[in-house]
Design a protein around this nucleic acid. Structure first.
Length: 876
RNA sequence: GCGGACGUGGCGAAACUGGUAGACGCAAGAGACUUAAAAUCUCUCGGGAUUCCCGUGCGGGUUCGAUCCCCGCCGUCCGCACCA
C-alpha cells in the first residue's frame, strides 16, 4: 500500500529507532575495510542547535553516508566543546553549577541532533568538561612539560576587563575581546605557555602539503605565522652619549640593503635602553609613560600618530664610525617583535617616512626605481618599496636589492665586535607562544603545584584527574578557584610541605585541539589515545566547519598534533587531510513600526501586485522587510530547527540546506525554499509509488532484448548516477541535488510516455534500476524518505546499509553526439554524428549543412576547427 | 595600508581543461482540474526585433572561439593590520 502523502512525523522517528537498534552507524576499530573519518566541528552546548549546525551536520552526514555506501569503514562521531564562560555566566545567573547547565544543554541538543537523523556513532560521544576527558588533557600537559613544550614566563598579556581573564593574541579582534567585545588592556602576569613557536617553520612549510584545504585558509595561516628573513645588526653606542652600562643597540631588519639610507634609530617604549636613558631624563620618562597609557588599547595604537622622543643617545653607523645616528623612543616600535628596535630608512619605508616628516629628519633614497634617473629621484610623502638598483650607497651602488642584502650581510657577519660577529642572519616569525592560563573556573585545571621551597612541581600522574570542586562561589571578581577555601591547599608532592595548586585553568581552545584524536578510542581510561588506533583512523579525511576557525582552532590543532607526536601519543603531524569551510545561514530581517526586530515566525508575507509585503500575524500591523543577514539572536532573524523539523521533517530541512547555494557560500533560508523542498519530498514519494507499481522484482537481471525506450531510461539513470557521485565527491551538494532532480524529472517523463502503451520486461527492468538508483542517490541527503521509498520498492533491509550502485560508464555515454556548429564563433546549426566519427567525416557533414552553405556563399572556408565530441567552428 | 575572494536573468545559481551562457530550483504569469481553495498537472519566463541582433560589472587584449586566460578600471565582501 502506498499512502497518498508522505508523513515525516511518523516515519522519521521510526527509522531513527531502527538504525539505533541495528547499530548501523557504530564503527569498529578492528574493521578491515578501508577507513574514512568524517568530522564536523563539534558544537558548544549553548542550549539549542541553530541552523548553522543543521547545515554543518547535514553536509557531514552526506559525506558519511556516501562513504559508508561506497564500502568504507566510516568514523563519524559527535561530542561537546563543553568548557567555557557562558556556562559560568548562566550558573551565576541561576545560582547553580556550570555543569548542571552544560549537561542539561547537552541532553537537549543531543535530542535535537538525533531528530535530524544523522548517521553518528553515539557510542563515542565525549564532553570536554568530563573528568574522563580532561584527565588525559592534564596528563598530556605534564608530558608536554617534560618534553620542554611548556613554558612559564612573565609576560604582557591581553587582559579582558569584562570577562576578567587573559586572552590569546588570536582572541583579540580589533583590540577587543572576542567574546565580551571589551577594549583589551595590557597587563604583566606570570602565565603558562605552550611553545607553538617551536614549530613555526614546520607549521608554515607543511601548509603546502595540505592540498585539500581551501587556499584561503592556508593563506590566512601563512600570514598569521608571518615568516620574515632578515639580519640582526649590532650598532655601537657613542660612549659620550651612552647611559651607564650600555654599549650597543641591536636591531632587526629585513632591509639591510638600505643601511646607507638610515636617518635614525628607534626603540620601543619598553626597551631596556629607553628605561636606562629615562633614568636621567624626566621628560623622556614622561613620554614613555604616555606611550604605555596609549598602548593599553590596540585600537588606539592603530590610529595613533607616529610619535617619538630623542633619547640623546647616538650610535655609529656599522660601515662608518664617524656617521652618528640619533636614537629615538618611538610609539610605533613593538617590543614583542624582533629586538624591539629598528633602524629607520625613511625613503623606503612608509612608517619611517611619516616619522621623519614629523620630526624634520629628512631622507636619502638608496634604491632607484627602474627607468628613473638616480640624480633626481627624490622621495617626499610616499616611500618607495619597489624594485630597483642601489644608489647613494657607496660600495653597494649599482647592485640589485638582493645582491646588496647579501653583500651587507656577508660583510657585517665577518666584522668582529666584542668577540661576536656584528651581524647575524635571522628568521623571525610573527607567531607567538600560546598563552593558555585563564583565571576561570569552568575549564581544565592546570596540573601543577606551587611549593615555597620546590617551586613549580608537576602533579603526580596518579593524582589525575585533578577535578574541579563542585562547591564553588562564582560571584567573586577574579579567579573562583583561587577563592575556594580548601581546594588549592595540598601538600607538595616533592617535599610534603604545605603547598598550593595552580588555580588557573586552560584556555578552552586546548580542549578542542585534540578531541578528534580522542574519538578514535574514547573508552581508553589509561591514556589519551591508543597510538595504533589513532594512527589507523587519523588524519581526519574530511573536516567540515566554519571559516571563523580558520586560524585559531586549526592552527592550535596542528600544533597539538605535533606535540602529541613528540610525546608518543600520535604518529603523525597533520590532523586534517581535507578541510571544508561552509558558509553561513542568512535570513531576511524584519522590523516593526517602532523599530523593534521581529521574528520570522511572528509574521506573514503576501505578494500584492508583484511586491512582497510583510505584516504581523497578530494585529496585522505592517512590518518592514530588511536586509538579508546572518541569523542572530540580536536581529531576531532566526528560525528554530525544531520548528522546521516538526512541521516539514528533518529530510526537508536537510534537503533545502544543501540544495540551492554552493556549500562554501552563504545560504538564504526562506519559507518558500523550505516549501519547495517539502513539495519535492511528496513528489519523490509519488514517483516511487508509481515506479513500484510496475518495476521488475528486486534483484531481477537485465533481459537480453532492450528496447530503445528502456535503453534511454537506463542511460539516463547511469548518466545521473555518475554525475551525482562526482558532485558529492567534490562536496558540490547543490549540483548533486540538481542532478538528482533531473533524474527524477526524467523518470517521471518516461512514466508519462509509456503508461498507455503497456510495459514489457525490458521497461520493467529499466524502471527497477532507475527507481533503485534514484533512492540511493538521495539517501545521503534525505535518509528517512529513502528508507520508506526503499521499502516501497520491495527491499527488506535498510538502505542505510546498502551498497552504492555501480555506474555503467559505457551505458552512460551515448553512441552519437550532437555537435553545435559555429560560423565565425556563433552557433548557427547542429549535427548529430557518431561519437567516434573522424574529423574528415564531421567536416564533410558540416559543409553539407544548409546554414554553412549559405554562409560560405560558394567560397571555400578559411578554416574549420573540429573539436571531437565538442564543437565545430567554420571560419569564413 | 597589505593580502585574498567575488561580480552571470526578478532571485539562489549552473557551465568539466578556453568549446551551445543561464542546467536545476525559487518567485511570477497564463491555462487545466475543482462549487471554491489547497494540492496536482500543462505552458511561458535575459533583452530587443519579422528569418536575426545584443547580452556574464566596465574598457582593452590574446584566440577560430573568452563567464573562464592577460592588462587597466569600478564595485562588494573577507582576513591581517605600525611585524622593522
Amino acid at each position: 500500500m502506498h499512502a497518498e502523502r508522505y508523513n515525516p512525523r511518523e516515519s522519521e522517528p521510526k527509522w531513527q529507532q531502527l538504525w539505533e537498534q541495528r547499530q548501523t552507524f557504530q564503527s569498529r576499530n578492528d574493521d578491515s575495510r578501508p577507513k574514512y573519518y568524517v568530522l564536523e566541528m563539534f558544537p558548544y552546548p549553548s542550549g539549542r542547535i541553530h541552523m548553522g549546525h543543521v547545515r554543518n551536520y547535514a553536509m557531514g552526514d552526506v559525506v558519511a553516508r556516501y562513504r559508508r555506501a561506497k564500502g568504507f569503514n566510516v568514523l563519524h562521531p559527535m561530542g561537546w566543546d563543553a568548557f567555557g564562560m557562558p556556562a559560568e555566566n548562566a550558573a551565576r545567573l541561576n545560582k547553580s553549577h556550570p555543569g548542571t547547565w552544560t549537561y542539561a544543554n547537552i541532553a537537549t541538543m543531543r535530542g535535537q541532533l538525533k531528530s535530524m537523523g544523522l548517521s553518528l556513532d553515539w557510542s563515542r560521544e565525549i564532553a570536554t568538561c568530563d573528568p574522563s576527558y580532561y584527565k588525559h588533557q592534564q596528563a598530556m600537559f605534564l608530558d608536554f612539560l617534560k618534553a620542554g613544550l611548556v613554558d612559564r614566563k612573565k609576560s604582557k598579556v591581553n587582559w579582558d576587563p569584562v570577562d576578567q581573564t587573559v586572552l590569546a593574541n588570536e582572541q583579540v579582534i580589533d583590540g577587543r575581546g572576542w567574546r565580551s567585545g571589551a577594549l583589551v588592556e595590557q597587563r604583566e602576569l606570570t602565565q603558562w605557555f605552550l611553545k607553538i613557536t617551536d614549530f613555526s617553520q614546520d607549521l608554515l612549510e607543511s601548509l603546502d602539503t595540505l592540498d585539500r584545504w581551501p587556499e584561503k585558509v592556508r593563506l590566512m595561516q601563512k600570514n598569521w605565522i608571518g615568516r620574515s628573513e632578515g639580519l640582526l645588526v649590532r650598532f655601537r653606542i657613542d660612549p659620550a652619549t651612552a647611559p651607564a652600562g650600555e654599549s650597543e643597540l641591536e636591531i632587526y631588519t629585513t632591509r639591510p640593503d638600505t643601511l646607507f639610507g638610515a636617518r635614525f634609530m628607534a626603540v620601543a617604549p619598553d626597551h631596556p635602553l629607553a628605561a636606562k636613558a629615562a633614568e636621567s631624563n624626566p621628560e623622556l620618562a614622561a613620554f614613555i609613560a604616555e606611550c604605555r597609557r596609549m598602548g593599553t588599547s590596540v585600537a588606539t595604537l592603530e590610529t595613533a600618530e607616529k610619535k617619538g622622543f630623542d633619547t640623546g643617545v647616538r650610535v655609529a653607523h656599522p660601515f662608518d664610525p664617524d656617521w652618528k645616528l640619533p636614537v629615538y623612543v618611538a610609539n610605533f616600535v613593538l617590543m614583542e617583535y624582533g629586538c624591539g628596535a629598528i633602524f629607520g630608512c625613511p625613503a623606503h619605508d612608509q612608517r619611517d617616512l611619516d616619522f621623519v616628516n614629523a620630526y624634520g629628519l629628512g631622507n636619502v633614497p638608496v634604491v632607484c626605481p627602474p627607468g628613473q634617473d638616480a640624480a633626481n629621484f627624490t622621495v617626499t610623502d610616499v616611500a618607495y618599496d619597489g624594485d630597483g638598483l642601489m644608489i647613494n650607497s657607496r660600495f653597494l651602488d649599482g647592485m640589485t636589492i638582493a645582491d646588496a642584502k647579501e653583500e651587507v650581510s656577508k660583510r657585517l657577519e665577518t666584522v668582529d665586535m666584542g668577540g661576536r660577529p656584528q651581524a647575524k642572519r635571522q628568521v623571525n616569525f610573527r607567531l607567538r607562544d600560546w598563552g593558555i592560563s585563564r583565571q576561570r573556573y569552568w575549564g581544565c585545571p592546570i596540573p601543577v603545584i606551587h611549593c615555597e621551597s620546590c617551586d613549580v612541581v608537576p602533579a603526580p600522574k596518579d593524582s589525575l584527574p585533578i577535578e574541579l570542586p563542585q562547591d564553588v562561589q562564582l560571584d567573586v571578581t577574579g579567579n573562583p578557584l583561587d577563592h575556594h577555601p580548601t581546594w588549592k591547599h595540598v601538600p607538595c608532592p616533592s617535599c610534603g610541605m604545605p603547598a598550593r595548586r595552580e588555580t588557573d585553568t586552560m584556555d578552552t581552545f586546548v580542549d578542542s585541539s585534540w578531541y578528534f584524536a580522542r574519538f578514535t578510542d574514547p573508552w581508553n581510561t589509561g591514556a589519551p589515545t591508543d597510538k595504533a588506533v589513532a594512527d589507523h583512523w587519523l588524519p581526519v579525511d574530511q573536516y567540515i566547519g566554519g571559516i571563523e576557525h580558520a586560524i585559531l582552532h586549526l592552527l592550535y590543532s596542528r600544533f597539538f598534533t605535533r606535540a602529541m607526536q613528540a610525546t608518543g601519543h600520535l604518529g603523525l603531524s597533520e590532523p586534517f587531510k581535507g578541510l571544508f569551510t561552509q558558509g553561513m545561514v542568512v535570513h531576511e530581517t524584519y522590523r516593526a513600526a517602532d523599530g523593534a526586530w521581529v521574528q520570522p515566525s511572528e509574521i506573514k508575507i503576501e505578494t500584492v501586485g508583484g511586491t512582497r509585503r510583510a505584516s504581523l500575524l497578530e494585529g496585522d500591523a505592517e512590518v518592514t522587510i530588511g536586509a538579508v543577514e546572518k541569523m542572530s539572536k540580536s536581529k531576531r532573524n532566526t528560525v528554530d530547527p525544531d520548528d522546521i523539523i516538526g512541521t516539514f521533517g528533518a529530510d526537508t530541512a536537510r534537503w533545502f540546506m544543501l540544495s540551492d547555494s554552493p556549500p562554501e557560500r552563504d545560504v538564504i533560508w526562506s519559507e518558500e525554499g523550505v516549501q519547495g523542498a517539502s513539495r519535492y519530498v511528496q513528489q519523490l514519494w509519488r514517483l516511487i509509488g508509481e515506479i513500484a507499481a510496475f518495476a521488475a522484482p528486486v534483484g531481477a537481471t537485465a533481459p537480453a532484448e532492450m528496447s530503445e525506450k528502456a535503453t534511454a531510461i537506463r542511460r539516463l539513470t547511469h548518466g545521473h548516477l555518475l554525475r551525482v557521485q562526482e558532485s558529492i565527491e567534490r562536496l558540490r551538494f547543490n549540483t548533486a541535488i540538481a542532478e538528482i532532480r533531473k533524474l527524477s524529472n526524467g523518470l517521471s517523463d518516461a512514466i508519462g510516455a509509456i503508461e498507455s502503451a503497456g510495459i514489457g520486461a525490458d521497461l520493467a527492468f529499466a524502471f527497477r534500476e532507475g527507481g533503485d538508483v534514484l533512492v540511493n542517490l538521495f539517501a545521503p541527503m534525505m535518509p528517512h524518505l529513502a528508507e520508506d521509498c526503499w521499502q516501497a520498492l520491495g527491499h527488506d533491509t535498510p538502505i542505510a546499509e546498502a551498497a552504492w550502485p555501480v555506474a555503467d560508464v559505457a551505458l552512460a555515454t551515448n553512441d552519437t553526439v550532437t555537435l553545435p556548429i559555429q560560423i565565425n564563433g556563433k552557433k548557427r546549426a547542429e549535427i548529430t554524428v557518431d561519437r567516434n566519427a573522424d574529423n574528415a567525416t564531421v567536416e564533410a557533414a558540416v559543409l553539407a549543412l544548409e546554414a554553412v552553405q549559405k554562409a560560405l556563399d560558394g567560397k571555400a572556408p578559411k578554416k574549420i576547427i573540429v573539436v571531437p565530441q565538442r564543437i565545430v567552428n567554420v571560419v569564413v
